[in-house]
Each structure stands twice: as C-alpha cells, then as structure tokens.
Amino acid sequence: MTFPLLSLPHNNAVYSVAFAGDSELLACGCLDKTITLWELPSGKQRKRLSGHSEAICELVFPPDGTSLLSASLDKTLRMWDLESGAVKATLSGGHQAYLTSMSAASDCRLAVTGAHDNLVIVWDIAGGRQRGELKGHTDRINAVAMSPDGKQIASGGHEKLVRLWETEKLQAVKDLGPHPAAIQCLAFSPDGKTLAAGDDAGTLLLWNVETGSKEKIPTGHERTVKSLAFSPDGTRLASGGNDTTVRIYDVDDRREIDVLKAHRNSVYDVAFAPDGTQLASAGFDRTAHVWKL
C-alpha cells in the first residue's frame, strides 16, 4: 500500500494543486478563496495568497519560475508574483457565471476557461486580455483542456460530450461522445494526440484527437471521475474520484496499476511533479497529499 509522503492540512476543501517547475513548491487552491504555497519536501507553509472572492478551481505555474496563474469561481484569472505574493495582473470580464475550469499551454502564453455560463473563453495571458469566445455549448461546462502547444482546446460538461476546438481559428472542430454522464475532467497527453475524459458515471475514456476513436480504460472508480493528469512523459495517467481514491494507469497497456488511498472525501485535482516522481492530490477532505510514485 502506498502512503503519502506529505499530508498538508487546509482550512477548507482543496480544489486544485500544482507543482512549480523545480518541484520544490506546491500550490494548493481552496474553497476558502485562498492559495497556500508549500515548500517541498519539508511541507513548510511559505505563503498564503488572498484576493479571490471565491474558490480557487485551477492553478498553473508559468515557466518563468516567478509567477502563479490562478482561476477562481469568481470569474477571474489572477497572475501572482511568488516573491511578494502580490497580484500582478487580473483578467476578468468574460464569464457571467461560475468559472469552473482553466487550462494553459505549456508556455502559459494562452489559457482557456470554461464556466457555468456555457461559454469557453481563450485568454491571451501574455497580453492580459481576452482572445476570443467559443460559443456552442448549451449546458454548463465543467472541464476544459488546452493542448501543451496551445493549438487545440477541449471542453465538456453537462451535455455529456467533448467538443474539440481549434485555438487559432476559434472554431469547433468536432464533437467526441456522447459519454454516459456529464463530463467532469479532461486532460491532453503531452504530445497532444490523446485526450483523456472522465465523467459522472465513473467512465474514463481515451480519445484519439485526430481520428475521434476512443478506448475505455477500466477503472476502479465507483462514481465520478473528478480529475485527470498525464505524467510529463505521457506514460502514466492519474485520476481522482468521488470515491476518495487516486488511481494510476499505464497508458500504453490501458490498465490500472496503482490505487492511492488516504483521502476521506472526493479528490478534486491531481498533478504530476515536473520530474514525474511525485504526484499531488487535492481533496474535499481539506487535505492535499504528496505521493512518491
């Protein structure tokens, strides 16, 4: 049985986790509207960032090593200076309902958000402005993903299908699905060729982005697959579920290879460390765990 290396307690449910590029810092976004920065491997709390007015649903460390990008249900994105803890930029004015998901290209120049207003928005992070809106969804969006090169976007939610978009043209390319239940999480593989999608029925599908074909990964999740992440080398996939477990899969073999049990509530986010040796998980049980793989 695998035990967590670190268990980091929070005041409220943890919604999001992200490793900094050097794997020496972990950011955790909470329902209590704050972001906590933890030093690794010590587990010492370095800073707590306040400013959002709602839960922090996603976190991304840009490659500059000095910043943190956060997305909140409060419909804003904020770029934080890690040293001072100050907000360097705020992007807002796009969504009219809860912003539930955000994903960024690996260079973090572009990001995409999805919200309960059925809208997908592409953001020019470097320029500090909105790049465009992707309209067409007719129900709430729970998950978005941007391919590492920033050229493709995937979005999904209560319509039970995944929509692929071309970033440059801001146009829908194709729909993937339907899934048996509402989409809850999406993740592109590092090469951008595969899209993993999890839903409320506990289904985990790998979509071939080019052909639209799918393969189901047998998963032990009993209910919702809430969060997904590919390892940096693309060989493994991690999922977090409402059944409180974190599960690791061998992508090539399409099989589950490990089950991580320590959370006592739904697992809202999972993230691999940049070197692939560790995994962080965020739980509604007010805890973030760091696991050695």
């Binding site: 449910a13 839960a55 809860y98 539930t100 729970n142 409402n242 509530n265 509604f284 049980d285």
Partner: peptide, 16 residues
C-alpha cells in the same frame, strides 16, 4: 451542489 461540492462531498465533510 457544484461548483461548491456536491451534497455528498459536503455530507462527508460535515456528518463525521
């Protein structure tokens, strides 16, 4: 329910 946790997420938090 979402995005503030499902009824059951919150129940697992509060009931114990």
């Amino acid at each position: 329910g979402q995005p503030h946790g499902t009824n059951f997420d919150n129940a697992r938090d509060h009931l114990p």
